[in-house]
Nucleic acid binder design. Structure first.
Lengths: 346, 346
DNA sequence: ACCGATTATTAACACGTGTTAGAAACTCGT
DNA sequence: ACGAGTTTCTAACACGTGTTAATAATCGGT
C-alpha cells in the first residue's frame, strides 16, 4: 500500500510557477533588499499556494550549520531517560537551547560505541556525557574540528570540560558521619561498568571513591574497614542492597550511597524492615534530586548543581561553536545538605 | 581569539591524496564490489591518515533521509524535561529508536509556535506531542509529505494517532470514590493553557473531564457540585492546592487529581496537615508514575501505559516512514489501580 | 532622445555526497 | 596479435539551497 510519494516541492517549482529565476525565490525569503517589493510579494504568494518551505537539510549543507546541539550519551536512550539525573541535566542544557533557539539531538551509542555514533549526527557541536574511558572520541572530535564539551569525565588538556567537585562532596559526607561517631560504614555505589577491571575507577566515581578514602584516613580507617556494594543505579537495586546489608553482623550503622536513587531505595528497605532512621542507621545520598526533600525522613545528601552543570556545558559549547578557541574548565561546587536521615550513633 | 577553523577534509582531498577519482572514494566506503580490492585498501588507508569521514549532512541530502525522528513538543525544553511524564514517554520511544538505530531530535516550539519549528528540523518524521489546538500543524506536515503521528491530541481523519482511554480512566476513578460513599469531591486538574477560553477543553483533558462528568451523572451530580481547581502540573502546586482545599467548609472527603504529580503533592500537604489518608480524605491520581508505589500511603491511581504509548507511536512512525499509507489509530487501555490512598467515607 | 547611474534579475558556482553511463584498461581464447 | 568480454575506474549528474558576478531593465538629467 505504499503510495506514490509525491516529490517535494522545491524552490525550482516556485520559480517556474511565478515566472522568475530560482535565485529570486531565495532572495524573496532571505534578503528582501535585493529584490523589488512587487515580485517579492508575488513569489511569496505563489510559494504559499504551492506549500513551499526551504529544505532544512539543503540549508544546513549550504550554511554549514545545523542549529542543533548533539548530546553524546554513554547509554541507550531507554536507560538514559529512566535516569532522573539526565532529566535535570537536560533541563539546564534546555535553557541554553531555548535562549539560543537551538534544538537538541540525543545521540546514543551506535553498536555499543559512542565513537561510531559521531559521524552520523548532523550537529554543530557535542556535549559529551559521562565519558569514563576515552576510546578515541576526543581525538575524533578534535580531528574533525567539531566543537565539544566534556561533562563528568576525566578532564583533558585541550578540551573544555565541566565537572563537579565529587571528591570534596564524598569527603564531606563521610566526615559528617564520622563526626557523628559512626565507624561501621557501608558504601553503596552504582555499578562502575565493565571497564573497571581494565582501567580501574574513572571519572566521577573515581573522585568520589578517593573522597571517601581520604575522609576515612582522617580517623585511621581504610577501604578494608568498610563494606562496599556495587549495584545498578535504580531504586529497586538500592532497596535490595540495603536489605542485604542489614543481614550482616555487625550491621552497618551508616550507609553512604553514591546516588540519591540508591539512598532512597535504601530508605524504603529500612522502613520495611522497621529500622529507625536515623536512630539505628544513618543514610546519606549524592545529587540532591528533588525527591530527597519529599521522602521521610528527608535525605541528608550531597548537592551537586546538575541543572547548572547542563547550563554551563551549553554555554561553553555555544562559545566553542562561535569560534572561541580557548578551553575553559569549570568545576562546580558541591555542598553537604544535612536533613533528617543522619544522626549520632546510638 | 577565533582560530582559523581549518576546512573539513572532504572526499575530494582523499581522492587527490590517493591519486584516484572522488567516485572511487565513495565506492570504497559504500559499495566494495565496484572497486578493486587493492585500491579500496589504499583509499581507506589514506582516508584514515587524513581523518576523513563522510559529511552527514551531505549524505542526508543525497539519500533523502536523516535517520532521526523528531519529537514536536508543545512546551520549551526545560519545562518538558522537568515533567516525568515525558521521561517515560521517551523511554518507550527510545526503545524503538534503539531497535532501529535512530536518533532523537527534540524540537521545542519556535517563537511559541510548534508550526514554525517544523521547517527547521532535519528529520524523517515527527511524533507530535500533546497537540491540543491544531493551528495548521497537521496540514503543514501533510502538505510537505512528512510522516507523522499524533499523540495525546484530538484524533483526526487522515492522520495516524495514539491515545489513551482517558474518558474511561477518569470515569473509573470517580466511580470508585462514589462507590466508597464520597459525595464531597474536589477535582484537581492541571492547567488547560491559555486556549481554554477560545476552544474550551481539548485533547486528553477534555476526555478526562467528560469521564468525570459521566461518573458524577450516575449518582445525579454535576460539575456544579464539585470543587474544580486548575494549577500548573508540579508537585508544589499540588501541595498548595490541597492545602487550600482543606480550608473549605465543608472540606472535600475525596480529591481526584488528574495527574500523579498533583496527587503526590496533595498527599504531602495532607500529611503535613495531619489529615489521615484514607481515613479522612481519599486521593486518586492519574498516570501511575513509578513514584505512586513509593509514597505512603501508596497511591490509588489510573494507570496509563506511557511507555507503551511511546513505543506504539514510534512503531507507527517508522511504518509511515517506510511508506505505509494507512492511518492507524490506537487507543490504549487505562486501568484503575486501587492501592492505599482511597477508602470508605468515615 | 541619449548616456551614465542605479536597480532588478539571472546565470553560474559552491556545499559534499551517492550513483549511472560510458570510457579505459586488462584478460583470454583462437 | 587481435577483437570479444570482463573488470576498474572516472566524468557527469542529482540532491536543494545560498550567494557572487555579470547582465538586462529602469530612471533621472541635460
Amino acid at each position: 500500500m505504499s503510495g506514490p510519494t509525491e516529490p517535494r516541492v522545491t524552490s525550482k517549482d516556485v520559480a517556474a510557477a511565478a515566472g522568475v529565476s530560482r535565485s529570486a525565490v531565495s532572495f524573496a525569503f532571505n534578503d528582501p533588499t535585493k529584490i523589488s517589493d512587487a515580485t517579492r510579494r508575488r513569489i511569496l504568494e505563489v510559494a504559499g499556494e504551492l506549500g513551499y518551505t526551504p529544505n532544512p537539510v539543503a540549508r544546513m549543507l549550504q550554511q554549514g550549520r545545523t542549529r542543533s546541539l548533539g548530546v553524546l550519551l554513554p547509554q541507550d536512550l531507554p536507560q538514559v531517560m529512566e535516569n532522573p539525573y539526565y532529566a535535570q541535566f537536560l533541563v539546564g542544557l534546555g535553557q541554553v537551547c531555548h535562549r539560543e533557539g537551538l534544538t537538541l539531538l540525543l545521540t546514543p551509542p551506535l553498536r555499543n560505541s559512542m565513537l561510531k555514533a559521531i559521524p552520523y549526527a548532523a550537529v554543530d557541536g557535542f556535549v559529551v556525557c559521562g565519558l569514563e574511558t576515552d576510546r578515541g572520541e576526543v581525538a575524533e572530535l578534535t580531528r574533525r574540528g567539531i566543537p565539544f564539551v566534556l561533562v563528568d569525565s576525566d578532564p583533558q588538556e585541550g578540551a573544555p570540560s565541566v565537572d563537579v567537585d565529587d571528591h570534596a562532596g564524598a569527603y564531606e559526607a563521610v566526615r559528617h558521619l564520622l563526626d557523628l561517631g559512626h565507624r561501621h560504614i557501608a558504601v553503596l555505589s552504582f555499578d562502575p561498568g565493565p571497564d573497571k577491571a581494565v582501567y580501574g575507577y574513572r571519572g566521577p566515581l573515581a573522585r568520589r571513591m578517593s573522597g571517601v578514602a581520604e575522609a576515612l584516613a582522617t580517623v585511621g580507617l581504610t577501604f578494608d574497614d568498610v563494606r562496599l556494594v556495587e549495584v545498578p543505579c535504580t531504586r529497586l537495586d538500592g532497596y535490595r542492597a540495603a536489605r542485604d546489608l542489614m543481614l550482616l553482623d555487625p550491621a552497618p550503622t551508616a550507609i553512604v550511597a553514591l546516588s540519591d536513587i540508591l539512598a532512597i531505595g535504601a530508605l524504603d528497605a529500612l522502613r520495611d524492615l522497621d529500622v529507625d532512621v536515623p536512630g539505628e542507621v544513618s543514610v546519606t545520598g549524592f545529587d540532591d534530586q528533588p525527591e530527597a526533600v519529599w521522602v521521610r525522613p528527608r535525605l541528608t545528601t550531597v548537592r551537586q548543581p546538575i541543572q547548572a552543570k547542563g547550563r554551563v556545558a551549553g554555554d561553553f559549547l555555544v562559545s566553542a561553536i562561535r569560534g572561541e578557541t580557548q578551553h575553559p574548565h569549570q568545576t562546580l561546587h558541591t555542598a553537604l545538605i544535612v536533613r533528617e536521615s543522619t544522626g549520632p550513633i546510638a
